[in-house]
């Protein structure tokens, strides 16, 4: 059971605030990754405020809980905001993001003891392996909860993710849901220009995964049923992946759909321009 179990209207409110948090955090230190963070806001809000069974009184082993792993660790701002807004730590701490002595490192880590984080990520391609290992231990421990992992799409250029994909199918790890942030952008440009992924659906299917497609991962009306469907497909011998179309920078008009905001912070004027588009719903930190 999710501790919030919010309706869509409440989820939208949280998403607005999370987006405000993201642009303010990144602006404050003039560094960080707003594009992917904004694009994955709906997914993380849906997971933590609707979908997952989880306990903000954090414990590392997470027995009896669904677990979430962020493999594309550079979108830490969205995760930090969602964790704070879900009660894992005080939202005031968001103001320490990327500053000296902060628990909110540029990329997520267990090293500083931030509640909600179970593995360091940032060097890409490692999250699916970690998540699959955690999922197998859930089975060993007779824990029927699920493991979620998010990767980018450019991240799929790393070979390790395909080692993990092969392994999960071979070992019938059917308690995992892997979401791919399919925004088509990476640092050097469109994924198709940098290193095309070909037919991702066929790739995953041929690796033995059940593949779902979410046409618009920035729309709760499409995302929530997809997550429900993914959950209903677990326990049937196949790992499940969701190819989730999103727009990098979603919610801030001048950032949307471009790789240029992958890892660039807004300046003062751009921050103002962004914030007028994002309603303050839960009080700024």
């Amino acid at each position: 059971m999710n501790p919030f179990n919010y309706e869509t209207e409440q989820l939208l409110d949280v998403a607005h605030q999370v987006r405000r948090d993201i642009v303010r955090m990144v602006h404050a230190v003039n560094s960080g990754h707003p594009g992917g963070s904004l694009g994955c806001t709906e997914l993380l809000v849906a997971l933590y405020f609707k979908q997952m069974t989880h306990n903000p009184e954090f414990n590392m082993n997470g027995e009896g809980e669904d677990l979430f792993f962020l493999s594309n660790g550079h979108i830490s701002p969205v995760w930090y905001s969602v964790l704070a807004r879900a009660g894992y730590f005080d939202p005031k701490e968001l103001s320490t993001f990327r500053k000296l002595d902060s628990r909110l490192q540029g990329h997520p880590t267990t090293h500083e003891g931030l509640p909600g984080i179970r593995i360091a990520s940032g060097s890409l391609g490692q999250g699916p392996s970690v998540a699959i290992g955690a999922a197998q231990v859930k089975k060993l421990n007779n824990d029927d909860k699920l493991v979620y992992v998010l990767t980018g799409d450019g991240e799929l250029e790393e070979g390790q993710v395909w080692e993990a994909a092969m392994y999960a199918a071979h070992h019938k790890v059917d308690n995992i849901i892997w979401a791919v942030d399919y925004n088509g952008q990476q640092i050097d440009g469109p994924v198709d220009a940098v290193m095309s992924l070909g037919n991702l659906r066929l790739k995953f299917e041929s690796f033995g995964w059940k593949v779902l497609h979410c046409e618009n991962g920035n729309d709760f009306a499409q995302l929530l049923p997809t997550l429900e469907e993914a959950k209903s497909l677990t326990g049937q011998g196949l790992p499940v992946v969701i190819l989730m179309n999103t727009q990098m920078g979603f919610g801030v008009d001048f950032m949307m759909g471009s790789h240029k905001w992958h890892g660039v912070a807004p300046n003062d004027a751009q921050l103002e321009q962004a914030l007028v588009q994002l309603k303050e719903t839960l009080n700024d930190y």
């Binding site: 179970r118 392996s129 290992g133 999922a135 071979h170």
Partner: peptide, 21 residues
Amino acid sequence: FQVGIAEANMIGLAAGMTIGG
């Protein structure tokens, strides 16, 4: 757990398996 010839995946899996004890 037989991992096959995929050592990077093996290390990640092992890290994940510590979660849950």
